[in-house]
Nucleic acid binder design. Structure first.
Lengths: 254, 254
DNA sequence: CGCGGAATTGAAAATACTCAAAATTAGTGG
DNA sequence: CCACTAATTTTGAGTATTTTCAATTCCGCG
């Protein structure tokens, strides 16, 4: 599923085999270089910094860190969370391969959240000032970058929708449907995947307690919407799950 | 408080008095032209489309409308809301003078929410494709635009924080503190202002019912945090209100 | 003056939370 | 590979906050 974790020197073309840089990255169709021609990918490659391995539970950046780079996830999963004045965490998102981390930091040149790897992961460092220079000369990339930022805004609006007026059961269904669609976009099964995050993280993200998440999983299991084994989830009835997420159907307790 | 509503022909310089365009707009220190020199403001002015008056309760754009323009609010207030598959509304934000509307539409060339004026308002149309062309030639503006988009991401993350792990009372306090700080940034009193939105809109935004908002207002009034008269709010104890919003203090019912 | 939308208030109901305990799983070292 | 410990998850019972439903009241406006 994810790539082997053995160390391979970065950015060194392996003759006749893998290309280095964006062109050789399995995420290039989803990530920043999406839709660029070979020459433009080349230009983008030249500004991209080193690749970084982030082991599970390690922090990529912290709230308050000075903003230097965006990070493109090559493989692995991350969570981002903010800490409020009272010291409580709020998970603001889960990110996976092909997604960009750090866009919230542009506004104040300072990171606004912590980003922690949920499993051993790898990211590309994208020095933002160099990227911005490049954007001035590459209209296609500029537009695509704006789309990505806009997508992030849209994503968060959807979370607001979710947090603001869905009941627990609907929220959780929507969460699963969202994960499924993102795996589908990456060529993975949308009906069978691993939850990379703990029940606690899910609960925190959805504004629910860990107990509620646990109960919802049990309920969905009993209603034969899902098969659940530890963190492995199999969606048995995607249609009904989507209906639940849309609010067209309900799934009462017991 | 807001500018007079009488009609004045747009973009016609009044000799020896007001300048037309961004330089003459009271919001230019908060809006897109922030930090630009006179020559650059001039360039920006040239691509900005007409000004539009939007009467109270009128819609600036709707979900699904093709995306052509961003809108800078010259004066007035707006709300944006999405409609979920079940037909329920979710207010995703309240916007005021100097703020930009429509950035969520870039990602899919289609508006993702409705924007409705909460009072008689005026916006500048900013044709996005022309803006993007200009951004390629104005690094300062480019960077500033990215800051604005990033700020929108940050703003929404803060709402997630609010919706995700605050109790009603804390949410509502945070909402008021947020409004206060935005009015302060605009040179208005941060302790005395009008709520431009209905209790229903506030409740919808915060994921609470209208009844809950009403009870919270009564409670805050009784605890001498606020004076409330219809939509006019006066913050009597800003320190305690902030403490409430931060979660450092509580304010129980009765 | 009276109508209608908006806001307030009260009482009952429901959803999700808290606390507690048990069960399961993951991690560690022998 | 197994045993042990720590962490995570599940489940139950009682509680609390917020919602729902209903009845008024308030206010703007014709």
């Amino acid at each position: 599923m994810s790539q082997p974790l053995s160390y391979v020197p970065n950015r060194v073309p392996i003759v006749g085999a893998l290309k280095a840089g964006c062109a050789g990255c399995s995420m290039h169709e989803l990530c920043l270089p999406m839709g660029l021609d070979t020459a433009d990918i080349e230009r983008l490659d030249r500004i991209i910094g080193r690749r970084r391995r982030i082991a599970r539970d390690e922090t990529l950046y912290r709230m308050g860190d000075p903003f230097k780079n965006l990070y493109a996830i090559r493989f692995g999963h991350f969570k981002t969370y903010q800490v409020n004045p009272a010291g409580e965490q709020q998970v603001t998102g889960f990110q996976m391969g092909g997604e960009l981390l750090g866009m919230d930091a542009i506004s104040a040149d300072t990171h606004h959240c912590d980003a922690v790897a949920l499993e051993d992961s790898e990211v590309c460092e994208i020095p933002f000032s160099r990227l911005e220079d490049l954007l001035g000369h590459m209209p296609t990339l500029l537009h695509h970058f704006h789309r990505i930022m806009s997508q992030e805004i849209t994503r968060e609006q959807n979370v607001m929708l979710l947090l603001g007026n869905m009941r627990a059961e609907q929220q959780f269904a929507a969460f699963l449907v969202n994960l499924a669609s993102r795996y589908a976009a990456r060529g993975y099964s949308p009906t069978s995947f691993q939850l990379r995050m703990s029940r606690e993280d899910i609960g925190n993200y959805l504004g629910l307690t860990i107990e509620s998440i646990s109960r919802l999983l049990s309920r969905f299991k009993k209603r034969e919407l899902l098969l659940v084994d530890k963190r492995e989830v199999q969606i048995v009835d995607p249609v009904r799950l989507k209906a639940l997420a849309a609010g067209t159907e309900v799934c009462l307790p017991m």
